[in-house]
Design a protein around this nucleic acid. Structure first.
Lengths: 213, 213
DNA sequence: TTCGTAAACGCAATGGGTTTGCTTTAAGAG
DNA sequence: CTCTTAAAGCAAACCCATTGCGTTTACGAA
């Protein structure tokens, strides 16, 4: 677990932490993340570099902290009425947010300054939480009006939707489109009902990978 | 593409690159990767630090280069006779190698010093190549003796097997076991034939994630 | 409220990693 | 063989990372 969890909860410590975090975000936004350096952050936050080094260890851990904070979902998944719609919409939004340049940078930061893997685990837990909320609605609806709805469990959704999305984002960021997220959900849930809204659903993505040697 | 690709192919440049790469591996093996520093590597390789900085930019990019080289598979996937066996064996080995502490470190290095994502892409291409070799055998066998064998395509295997494995390795390294790799392959190919060799196949993994908030 | 303890911060000095201009070497072409 | 130029060596300057010590301040107990 990162150190910020064990600092004193109130008073000066909290002020310093908030100042440092906002300083990181401001500098990253204004001058790009390559410009980020501990002394720069310290100056902007109005503290001394040694304070940052003592509390976070190094720049990577600080960035990892900020990244996890930034990766926390702020709203519940949109409520569309059925599992397929909810999951599709959420997957598309997840892909959209995470595959942006800043999203990829945050993911990398979270993975990076993470000696014990707890920050990355937190990241994954956020996604699992969101998925669980969506899946819980299925049970709710079944309880209410007895209708049966095919409901995979959280782990299956992580394996079949979240993991492929994240893998592509990290390892093959080229040519990632919303259709890919839709297809993953469709493959998981079965393509039974009304799909095919005219857009491309195919798995074509114009890459020349996996050529036989 | 990383810079080492555009250096002069022979002579002193090649010697320097080789010396630097082996220096990185030796120091990492002897003193741990935390001890790795550009001046140290330079001294061991018999070059000046500025040479390394000019060719690789910084330590992370150098480590990324070395990591990709280390992640290249050295042998063809084992040939067991049918798709299910080949893929299961390969997935187990992949998980075993990649989830080891040094494997995770290499993956992180490859992802890290990788501004344009080409090193990570190379990493993924290696896996896709191996999978493709396995899948090509199915077509070979069909051509030879007309037998039909269910054959997913490379992208499907990447989504259903490689991506979940890599996701767990990076984001949830706790409690990863060979059974997980076996289950992924079984889920993809259908659990039709003889499985259940006594070991645990279940998806139980004693984690408390995804608790409803 | 007051006091005591210990965590957290500021200050300052130092060591070393990083960067850069200039020079020298050597690979590859004509 | 000579020429051109990419790449490596050298050295100095810069700045970041690290650490010891003194000071401030939050938190808890009397």
């Amino acid at each position: 677990m990162s150190r910020k969890q064990m600092v004193r909860p109130g008073g000066r410590s909290a002020r310093v932490q908030a100042a440092v975090h906002t300083a990181v975000r401001e500098i990253a936004a204004e001058q790009g993340r390559d410009a980020l350096t501990v002394p720069l952050v310290a100056q902007r936050a109005g503290v001394t570099p040694s304070t940052i080094y003592r509390r976070w260890g190094d720049l990577q851990e600080l960035l990892s902290d900020v990244a996890v904070e930034r990766l926390r979902p702020e709203t519940e998944p949109e409520r569309l009425g059925d599992l397929r719609s909810d999951l599709t919409a959420w997957a598309e939004q997840f892909l959209d947010e995470m595959s942006s340049p800043s999203g990829r940078a945050y993911i990398r930061d979270a993975l990076l300054g993470d000696p014990d893997g707890s920050n990355a685990g937190q990241c994954s837990a956020y996604a699992a939480e969101q998925v669980d909320v969506i899946l819980a609605r299925v049970l709710d609806r079944e309880d209410r009006d007895g209708r049966e709805e095919a409901a995979p469990d959280v782990e299956t959704v992580m394996d079949r939707v979240v993991a492929p999305l994240m893998y592509r984002i990290l390892f093959r960021p080229a040519g990632l489109e919303p259709a890919y997220a839709r297809r993953l959900v469709a493959d998981l849930l079965g393509e039974a009902e009304g799909e095919g809204d005219g857009e491309d659903e195919g798995k074509a993505e114009g890459e020349g990978e996996a050529a036989r040697p």
